[in-house]
Simulated assay, not measured.
Amino acid sequence: MPAESRLAAAFGVSKPVVREAVRELVALGVVHIQQGKVARVRAVDAAPLVQFFRFAVSENDHGLADANELRKLIEPQAAVLAARRGTAADQARLTQTIAAIENSVGRPEAFTDADIAFHEAIAAMTGNRLLSLQMQGLRSVIRGVSQILTMRPARTTQEWDATVQRHRAIYEAIIARDEARASSAMLEHFGAADAAIDQLAASWRSQRGETSAA
């Protein structure tokens, strides 16, 4: 970026005004400042979205359900586009992620990493940069939801297997380029997540002595 004096002259404002504007851009993740170096405009990435979604989801008791509902609006269509547009290289990447999911059963942290990689790979397969950035922005939310669900003390072997099978159903539909099946498999996946989140919410309300959702 040009020096503060040049920016001030170009826009007809004072240096303090430019300095405050640059601070705002840094806070938004648009500009990067390093001590002793020229300020630089950052490449577009998901960092601002990551911050936004992290705070938006954590600020209320319905955050998990809200996040899952948002993903349910986005990801079935992403699965459709992935089935339609995915290249051979994209499919190879998706194959690696489903293998990682299957190999991480019973290990919540590893499973969470594989789950994030799987859903981000599908977003990348759409060829839609904004959609891919959206999914990257949701990464911290996806991680939080996945960790809560996979770390439940009462999680059974059957539940682990069912989760893996839902992912495999999505994978197989996308690889087969079956758009309708890819969408329905993704919807089924989030339907199961809805049920698990409802159970958790009911448990939390019970622990707080509440009888219904706030």
Score class of each variant (00 low, 15 high):
117 A>C: 13
71 R>A: 06
2 P>S: 12
62 H>R: 00
182 A>P: 07
163 T>A: 14
169 A>F: 01
20 E>T: 11
187 L>R: 07
30 V>Y: 00
48 P>S: 05
31 V>M: 10
51 Q>C: 00
66 D>G: 06
132 S>W: 12
52 F>D: 08
88 A>Q: 11
199 Q>N: 04
206 S>Q: 12
47 A>C: 05
88 A>V: 11
43 A>Q: 07
70 L>F: 09
25 L>D: 03
208 R>F: 11
180 A>N: 13
101 I>H: 04
104 S>T: 04
20 E>C: 09
160 W>C: 07
132 S>Q: 15
152 R>T: 04
82 A>Q: 05
6 R>Q: 14
65 A>I: 09
107 R>S: 15
165 Q>Y: 05
132 S>P: 02
147 Q>P: 08
44 V>C: 10
58 S>G: 11
66 D>A: 09
191 G>M: 08
155 R>V: 13
3 A>W: 00
151 M>I: 03
80 V>L: 07
1 M>F: 12
141 V>F: 02
179 E>F: 02
51 Q>W: 01
11 F>M: 14
191 G>E: 00
138 L>F: 13
56 A>N: 07
45 D>C: 09
121 A>H: 03
64 L>R: 06
191 G>F: 05
188 E>S: 12
185 A>W: 05
210 E>K: 14
131 L>E: 07
174 I>C: 13
55 F>P: 00
41 V>L: 12
214 A>S: 13
26 V>M: 05
64 L>N: 08
170 I>V: 11
45 D>M: 03
70 L>K: 00
197 I>Y: 00
78 A>Q: 11
57 V>K: 01
22 V>W: 00
72 K>H: 10
159 E>I: 05
118 F>Y: 12
152 R>H: 12
145 V>F: 01
199 Q>H: 04
109 E>H: 08
1 M>K: 05
202 A>H: 06
55 F>G: 03
102 E>P: 00
184 S>V: 10
110 A>R: 08
176 A>K: 11
154 A>M: 05
76 P>I: 14
214 A>L: 12
190 F>I: 02
178 D>F: 04
58 S>Y: 06
32 H>R: 13
171 Y>H: 15
200 L>Y: 05
185 A>Y: 02
67 A>S: 13
110 A>W: 04
118 F>W: 09
96 Q>T: 12
85 R>H: 15
146 S>C: 13
114 A>P: 03
99 A>K: 15
52 F>R: 03
23 R>L: 05
110 A>V: 11
167 H>D: 14
116 I>A: 11
123 A>P: 06
29 G>K: 02
153 P>Q: 07
178 D>N: 10
79 A>C: 11
146 S>Y: 06
162 A>L: 10
189 H>T: 04
122 I>M: 09
23 R>V: 03
30 V>D: 01
12 G>C: 10
91 Q>M: 14
128 N>K: 04
13 V>T: 05
205 R>N: 10
1 M>G: 13
157 T>E: 15
4 E>Q: 13
148 I>Y: 01
165 Q>T: 09
23 R>Q: 06
51 Q>L: 06
199 Q>I: 11
142 I>W: 02
